[in-house]
Amino acid sequence: MKRTRFRMTQDAKDALVLLSPLLVLTGVFLVFPVASNFYYSLTKWKGLGTPVFIGLENYRQLFQDTRFYSSLKSLGTLVLYIPLGVFLPLVIANILRTGLHGWKAYRALLYLPNIIGPVILGTIFSVILSQVGPITEILKSLGYANANEFYMLGKSTSAINTLSFLFVVWMRVGFGCIYFLAAMSTIDESLYDAAKIDGTNKFQDFIHITIPGIRFSIEFFTVLAFIEVFARMYGMIFTLTGGGPGYATYTLEFGVYMLSFSAYQKGYASAWAVILFFFCAIIALVQIRLIRKGEQS
């Protein structure tokens, strides 16, 4: 029998050698932690000492844990805000594109939340929305005697909705505007001129030219919003609500942190992280497909 011998070309060898530093770094700082997380999810371990292998016990516990289902519910609410979080900057960008007096100042103001960052914003809003904050004081000055009861972060429903609006919509408006404005600048102006000759109004231009023209950018921005919701919310949750009241603003990511660093249950937290990993993997796959689609088109 004839054996086929695998031989690398010199180009392939060179490429491999040149890529090897990056591969080593990726392996050490990305692949190994992810792989070891899968292993730790099958152990009882608090971050110190030797992990004890317990099979799928952590997953059994996870699927019986109220916090897990509360996290999914919170994520569901957050995801529901994504359409608004995409649509609002899109509309504002369109208004800015078509010309608005002093629009550069608006753009700077809108971008401000992105500069400040979620941790500081969470802290600021925990003060603004508190029972002794400016909103309460304004309501009191308007004669609303029970202004102290108007506490957005004190009730489950209002807390998760406040968090969702702040993080998914308000905080991302600035970046969204800049992003969509950049995308809109790539649309050929002659299309708008031709439409004007046909007698279209601004709304029709927006629906029939602008949106189709930046469709890829809108899809990509939506995927980014999903990533932010699933994997980048911890800072704001920690400073704004601490996951409460109850588990109202708990998310998978927040749960991973709390279980790992507050409850010393790193093995169990790893099981949460595995679930989060699968959610993120799905989002990443969608993102990759979109990028490929964008390249093809």
């Binding site: 004190g154 009730k155 489950s156 601490g242 409460g244 009241p245 588990y247 409850a263 249950q265």
Partner: peptide
């Protein structure tokens, strides 16, 4: 156990302050 404190506090808030449960 130290690990219960954060969640315990969250539910204290939910019962005594929010009055939701």
């Amino acid at each position: 156990p130290g690990g219960m404190i954060t969640d315990y506090y969250n539910f204290m808030t939910l019962y005594f302050i929010s009055g939701e449960i």
